[in-house]
Design a protein around this nucleic acid. Structure first.
Length: 577
RNA sequence: CGGGGCGUAGCGCAGCCUGGUUAGCGCGCCUGCCUUGGGAGCAGGAGGUCGGCGGUUCAAAUCCGCCCGCCCCGACCA
């Protein structure tokens, strides 16, 4: 592509709307432009990168035997009512009416549509297993879109859905998909981790998130370097090895704590440490209030309680409920004398001189001993994991890192097939529910993640596998006929050979061309200048490296092709592996 | 939805507090000259509903009210 004819609106200055690297550089490099909050146009250069990413994903999906199709973005409300999600999905679902006043939504995901298709077309066990995928636009009316392509409202997603005869089949489909994801992200040169994710009601170990490691990532991952355990913060289990928080015993005592409600206030007032407190939370589980005890310095993770109770929803009780069950305003709840089912995190085991609310306004209890002052509760792991916590698998210390969710895989089981009656006839002629899985990759987000992980102060440094062009040819002085002719020749020859070449034939000065070349992040630059040409040489430079190589003009095309091939060869899951 | 910030030319900004020439600067853009190894120089030029509506005033980018949009933090996120 001749840059004189290309549409490459690069920005010299930093747009003030952008803060994170990917957002800033994608704007500056002329790959995206904002239309509205969380809604972006993808410009030609960005589209090339996107296509590279899509191609990688397609190849890996096809390799698993999945079939590509394309489902409508606009979906009738009836399907969503059948699955129950029309009521459940909330404001994130963009809903609207057509001219006949029929309700529709713009698909945030496609379980309903694909399940509808499959239930109509698949009847026999002979038709299974099957896996479909698409690369398509999604719309989710996010509360807070941010960071450019990282969290947009409209975005491109690859979503896949597997359909199997039984659990075993579904698990095999799941494993295949996880492998395909690992290969895809590896080919994009992304530094990522596969972590266990919250699987909700379905449970089991069949939900994983694929997290790109990034300081700007929105999610926390808890990892154990010793045994390799890694999970999202919501999912991460914590080992039981808690040291008792206090020793010795003293008589239970009731003390006035006027107006002291929070952990900090109570600690300050009583001269206690947060870890001496037994924090008592009142939660509602299917309409039933429950008390949850956890050490004062830790946070409660409702997902864990949900899993423990196999409950559909766990929410913190409102002030009214709290006052009713504790007979005290919010901030003074405690386990002593409370008439509620009580569950406790392992962290409070062994506390013998704890501080708790007294279930009375402006009073707390001190020297609380579990088993003496209130009955031993049912213990479980209910805390939100943090770096420094013990690993549930090996007991060693875990650490936390930031990640950006690239993909999510999920075993759905029969959730949708049951709700929407997607069944098949087994060999005995018995009608059986299809077992499903769903698998998503944020394609536009993956593009942002690549930039997050591959850039420097001058711009993007694209890995060869997703680079919009492999080489940029820069004539230093276009007016010089020798320079121009040699540049043209190299450009023509490499283009002819099938490589993707950007040729900077603009009447810009060298400095401007170099700046743009760096900003765009093209992996290889061939610089043709009078000085070196006098010695029959041109310059080859790898983006991101300081060193330049001088190459005879006769061999430069052969040499650059070697270099590109070598760079591609380091693609661990790429062609040839 | 709560908190904070911003809205003036394509981009980055000044002017606003303390109302008053024709609304300014840098970059970019157009024309010409000149120049060509890390965003050159000179000359000329185009480009603005000062986010919108309403109000105060002889007079509003500037003061007041309402609204809209955008960014950041938080809550939220199959």
């Amino acid at each position: 592509m001749r840059m004189s004819q290309a549409f490459l609106p690069t920005l010299r200055e930093e747009p003030k709307e952008a803060e994170v690297a990917s957002h800033l550089l994608l704007l500056r490099a002329g790959m995206i432009r904002k239309l509205a909050a969380g809604v972006y146009s993808i410009l030609p250069l960005g589209k090339r990168v996107l296509r590279k990413i899509e191609t990688i994903i397609r190849e890996e999906m096809d390799r698993t035997g999945a079939h590509e199709l394309y489902l409508p973005a606009v979906q009738p409300a009836e399907l969503w009512e059948e699955s129950g999600r029309w009521a459940k999905y909330g404001k994130e679902l963009l809903r609207f009416q057509d001219r006949h006043e029929h309700w529709f939504c713009f698909g945030p995901t496609h379980e309903e549509v694909i399940t509808d298709l499959v239930r109509r077309e698949i009847r026999s066990y002979r038709d299974l297993p099957q896996c479909f995928y698409q690369i398509q636009v999604k719309f989710r009316d996010e509360v807070r879109p941010r960071f450019g392509l990282i969290r947009g409202r409209e975005f491109i997603m690859k979503d896949a859905y597997s359909f199997d005869r039984d659990e075993a089949g579904a698990e095999e489909s799941y494993r295949k998909m996880v492998r395909a994801y690992e290969r895809s992200f590896t080919r994009m040169n992304l530094d990522f981790r596969v972590v266990q994710a919250e699987a909700g009601l379905i449970g089991g170990n069949f939900s994983h998130e694929f997290m790109a490691l990034a300081a700007t990532g929105e999610d926390l991952i808890i990892v154990c370097d010793h045994c390799g355990y890694s999970a999202s913060q919501e999912r991460a289990e914590v080992g039981k090895s808690e040291t008792p928080a206090s020793g010795g015993e003293k008589a239970l005592e009731r003390v006035a704590t006027p107006g002291k409600k929070t952990v900090e206030e109570v600690c300050q007032f009583l001269g206690a440490e947060p870890r001496d407190l037994i924090k008592t939370l009142i939660v509602q589980v299917q309409g039933q209030p429950l008390a949850i005890l956890i050490r004062g310095d830790l946070e409660f993770n409702p997902n864990k309680l949900k899993r423990h109770l196999r409950a559909e929803a766990v929410e913190l009780a409102d002030a009214e409920t709290i006052e009713r069950v504790t007979k005290a305003p919010v901030g003074f709840a405690g386990p002593v004398g409370i008439s509620l089912k009580t569950l406790a995190d392992h962290s409070i085991r062994g506390i013998s001189r704890g501080v708790t609310g007294a279930n009375a306004a402006d009073f707390h209890l001190i020297n609380v001993k579990i088993g003496r002052d209130f009955p031993d509760p049912e213990y479980g792991d209910f805390r939100l994991a943090r770096g420094g916590d013990a690993c549930s698998q090996c007991g060693k210390t875990m650490r936390e890192i930031r990640g950006l969710e690239l993909g999510h895989s999920f075993k759905l089981g029969v959730k949708y097939s049951q709700a929407m009656r997607a069944t098949y006839l087994d060999p005995q002629g018995k009608e059986t529910l299809i077992v499903m899985g769903c698998y998503g990759i944020g394609v536009t987000r993956a593009m942002a993640a690549v930039v997050e992980q591959h850039h420097d102060q001058d711009g993007i440094i694209f890995p060869i596998s997703v680079a919009p062009y492999q080489v940029i040819v820069v004539p230093v002085e276009l007016a010089d006929s020798q320079v121009r002719e040699k540049s043209e020749e190299i450009y023509e020859k490499l283009t002819e050979a099938g490589w993707e070449i950007l040729y900077d034939d603009r009447a810009e000065r060298a400095g401007a061309k170099f700046k743009d070349a760096d900003l765009l992040g093209i992996p290889f630059r061939i610089t043709v200048g009078k000085r070196n040409l006098a010695n029959g040489r041109v310059e080859i430079k790898r983006r991101g490296e300081k060193a330049v190589q001088l190459e005879p003009t006769e061999t430069v095309c052969a040499r650059i092709q070697e270099l590109i091939s070598a760079a591609r060869g380091t693609d661990p899951a790429g062609p040839g592996s």
